[in-house]
Each structure stands twice: as C-alpha cells, then as structure tokens.
Nucleic acid binder design. Sequence first.
DNA 1: ACCTGAACACCGTTCAAGT
DNA 2: ACCTGAACACCGTTCAAGT
Lengths: 211, 211
Amino acid sequence: MGKDDDGKHGTGRDSYHHGDLRRALIHAGLQLVAERGIEGLTIREVARRVGVTHTAPYRHFDDKMAIVAAMARDGLDMLNAQMEEAMDAAGEDPLQRYQASGVSYVMFAYRHPAYFRVMFLPAVSDREVYPEVATAKEAGYTVLREAIVACMDAGVLRRADPAELTMLSWSLVHGLACLYVDGQLEDADEAAVRERARRMTFHLWRGTRNA
Amino acid sequence: MGKDDDGKHGTGRDSYHHGDLRRALIHAGLQLVAERGIEGLTIREVARRVGVTHTAPYRHFDDKMAIVAAMARDGLDMLNAQMEEAMDAAGEDPLQRYQASGVSYVMFAYRHPAYFRVMFLPAVSDREVYPEVATAKEAGYTVLREAIVACMDAGVLRRADPAELTMLSWSLVHGLACLYVDGQLEDADEAAVRERARRMTFHLWRGTRNA
DNA sequence: ACCTGAACACCGTTCAAGT
DNA sequence: ACCTGAACACCGTTCAAGT
C-alpha cells in the first residue's frame, strides 16, 4: 500500500476507460429503475451514483432514451438466453420445451422487473430509432415460434398459422408478466409464480393441441 | 351575438367553478398522455392547456399522482361499463357473454390507450394510497369472474377454481392489450384487433371447456 | 373558495473549456 | 478521447398574498 493511495490514477473505481463507464451507467440505471420505478430514472442521479459529472454520460449516449434502449437491449438478450437455456434444460420433448419457454418468460419478468419494464417501453420500441432493440425482440419471438412449429411437427399441436399461435402464447405470458411487474397481483413467491405460469401454459396447450 | 363577446365573464371556457376545473384537468391530462405518452404528462402543461396557473391544480389534487389516479379511476369505470354493455349486447348465452367481456377489454385498450396506460401504473396501484382505484379494478375482476362462473353453471366450462380461470383469461386479454398499447405489434385496424381477440378467447375456451 | 407569483430544488441538454 | 462547469429552459411543490 501507499502505491495506489491516489485514487485519481490507475484503475481505481472512480476512473473509467474503454467503455467501462458505459457499462457502469447501464448498471446504475437498472438499479435506479428497480428502486424508484421508471419515472425515477434520471441521468443526473445515474451519473451521481457512478461518480461522474451529469454531462459525462453524453460521451457514451446521445440522450436519456439511448441509455434506456441500451438497458432494454441487454435485458432482451438476457431473456432470449434464459429462454433457450430453459428449453434445453427441459430436454427433447417439444411440448416440454414449448412450455419451458413460456414459463421462463414469466420468471424472467418476476426476477428482473427493472429489465422487463424497460424492454417494452414505447419510447424504445420504434424500430427506426433503435433497430437493435427491435432485432432482439424478434429473436425472442423466433425462439417461441420455433418451439411451436416443433410441436406441430411432432403432432402435439394442431397445424395452424404459427404466427397466430405464437401471438396467443406471447400474449398470455406477457399478460401474466405485466400484471406481476406492475404490482396488480398479490405478492407471491417464486415457486408460486412458476406453478401458476405452468398451469396457464398447460391450459393454453389443451386449447390448441392436436385433436 | 355581441352579448358574450367578453370571454372573461360568465361561463366562458376560461372560467371554472363547482369543480369544472377538476374535470377539465383530467381531460387535458388524458389528451397529453395520448399525444406524448406517460412521461410527457406534466402538471404545468396541463394547467397551461386549461388556462390556469400551474399551481391551480393543487386546489383539486394533492399532487401529480392524484391526478393520474383520478384519470385511472375514470378509465376503470369506463372499462367496467363497456364490458357489461358488451356482455348485454351478446345476449343470454354465457359463453358468448364471457367471450364478449374479453374482447371488449382488448377493444377498450385499443380505443383508449391513454386511459389504459394510466390504469395500470404501479404508482397508482397501491390500495393503501388510492383505494378507489383498487376498488374499481376489483369490480372489473368481478365482472369477468362472474361471467366465468355462469359458464361453469351452464356446463360450458369445466368446474375448477374460478380464480384460476379468471387469472388465465385476464392475463391473456391484458397481454394482448399491453402489446398493442405499448406499440409492440404492427398496426392493425379495429376490425383486425377484434377478430384477433375473438380467436384468442376462443382458443382459450377450448382449453378450459367442459369435456 | 379559488387563483396568482415568486421561490426552491430538481430535471435534460448544450457548449466552451480543460487534461 | 474523455471529463468538467456554467448556462438554459424546463419540472413538481410550497407558500404568502390577493379577490
């Protein structure tokens, strides 16, 4: 010790380089949304928490919405990865994989409400302005859709327009997720939410199964 | 003419009394949310549009959230009325009435996105703070639930926990409504949305019907 | 009762300036 | 390259003051 006692040099926690600041801003922004909700997200408070001036973030992002879009993009990537992981953990049975994808969608929202809130904000949902967000959303849609097509191929879902069944499934899990995230439902622990999601997706399958 | 040429007296549009201001503020607030989204809602701009000082609204509402809560409450009342109206228009068949309630939920969101956005904000969803909002939400839940119980009584839905089926239905229509309202879906006209909602609720019924 | 005007502590964003 | 400080036009909210 005595070598790095000057916090202003080196890799101390109040010096940033190579885009570390970018990541730190995104992380602090999520934290803030988790604590105070979406309207509590403030560039100035984020900068304060990270330890830089309130204008520093503008070196990495065009404006406030660009930070939100970066948060949304990270969240969508996480969700997609988590859905695919859950499907793989579910094994080979197409129906199990389909159900796992829906349940994991709900569980992602339950575990990461700040990410989920930010992912579907209208302000970051214009594909002209934030194409990466739109692309990440499409990737998730495709995961779900292919799980459904696999069920049709295996004969456990009736042959129908895949787009229609995908929208149906997405609406159901998205609705349940939103109700939890927006505090519309009585509090429930993780196991209870998972069980509810499982039963709901099962009911849905029964309405769309083959014969 | 010539009698009311002085807009400052009488019942001209820039004088308020008997709580007219309250209604005018709510109306202007909705307009603003419709134009600029939830984060564009500003007490100062609302007051500006109504033609009063930015402190005048505080005579009628404790703070900004109280205005939002009043908007939410009005919207929920409208939704409940519209669901009941749609059920009556659907006739006597319990299944038709059940389906009509779900479809009208989605159509309300489609036609009144500003109301819908405001109705489920976490900030107005604490029953300790805004019990009227919570009560109005319960009334809607009850409408749906009773439509479901009527179907069970008539033997067109299997006997099960009504709460579970209500949550299932609510999640589905709420999810579709949110996806439209938040701009996650390609634009569609009213007839297309209604048809989609109809097909979805039908699929759901097939998964929960009796035998 | 209802409204006003000034004031305070915040915002997002821009820009000249520093290393 | 990256960060700072002052500045501008906004917010929500409070309060003494006016009719």
